[in-house]
Design a protein around this nucleic acid. Sequence first.
DNA 1: TAGATTGTTAATCGATTAACAATC
DNA 2: TAGATTGTTAATCGATTAACAATC
Lengths: 212, 212
Amino acid sequence: MVEKEISQAVISRLPRYFRYLGELKDEGIERVSSQELSDIMQVTASQIRQDLNNFGGFGQQGYGYNVEFLYEEIGKILGLDRKHNLIIIGAGNLGQALVNYVDFERRGFLFKGVFDINPALYGKKIRGIEVQCMEHMNQFVRDNNIDIAVLTVPKTEAAEIAERLISYGIKGIWNFAHVDLKVPEGIQVENVHLSDSLMKLSYNISRFQKDM
Amino acid sequence: MVEKEISQAVISRLPRYFRYLGELKDEGIERVSSQELSDIMQVTASQIRQDLNNFGGFGQQGYGYNVEFLYEEIGKILGLDRKHNLIIIGAGNLGQALVNYVDFERRGFLFKGVFDINPALYGKKIRGIEVQCMEHMNQFVRDNNIDIAVLTVPKTEAAEIAERLISYGIKGIWNFAHVDLKVPEGIQVENVHLSDSLMKLSYNISRFQKDM
DNA sequence: TAGATTGTTAATCGATTAACAATC
DNA sequence: TAGATTGTTAATCGATTAACAATC
């Protein structure tokens, strides 16, 4: 059965709900209404209820939502109850930073390997794992059941490496290279285009100063 | 005169147009029609024309758009013709990575200083610039006409630091901390919530595998 | 039971696409 | 001039918000 396709706009909001619910949970708060959540998150209560009801009825009339339950459910929707084995391609600063900064492991993203084309880096350890050469990638992906690759390579190389990774059986690419990857149906790409983001900031600063 | 507000959806697409036009320019291509751009960018020609016409008529009937001219114009719209002085708060891996990875300087974002609370880092150089202690921030921001701060600090500290930066006169914050900053009108925040992005990828992978 | 708040349908708003007259 | 392609208006589509009956 093919379920109703849920828009990416909705999906984009789920991690944010998840984050706020996590905070409420940590504060020991047991229940929350869509209106209360609306007040702290600055979105309409109506949108919250609509978004959640794409996935099921998690609340209860007259009561609201149980914080812990909803938190767990959104986690499941986001696939955080599964383990994802992940490798990083490109052992530069950004690759290293991502391993340390984002709290991968806590969310079920297990850092398994890191690869680079630069021989000077081979053997260097990142979080206890040695940088390997690209030739080992194929075998490694298959042996370790890797499903996510993090691409922090120059844009000139990104397309070719992505293609290889996909042929090895990877399911998703977290792409930090400044290119739009073309991938076959069924392969998921999530782009983090940092320079695009910075340009947006630049626009908003410039525009505001013009208005004054 | 207050101009018609342009939606963030449009703004978000501008850097992408800019990127593709830059590539065409580098290939020595002189003119492009909205249809040709549509074919390579996978957006409708209609959307391209609508988007551009928010800012003016950059094309010519029967001819299309001059690549170099349009590239320059979008650059101006994005504020890339101005210089932005920028500091980084948080000299950890991510802060360092951003300086090196994104091609800041080429786009007019001038890296002027870096600050951290960890005394062990003071004096350490990043791209030739010494890490300073947070107490110097106020004076530094004022003396160097800093308008952008890049926040790569733990989320527990982000809100307080952001507030301080704003009081020193900063105009925009590129926020990598996992919190939604509350800022006064006129201060621009651009969020890069890495963990949200990774969760989105996780959702899309899980959903696809369920469909199969 | 009465009050609260959901789940869901209906109304509105905004963004995208289509169509075509204007014009180079 | 004829052909091409824009700029722009109109039509469609989708997402958000409002309203309210269902129900805990």
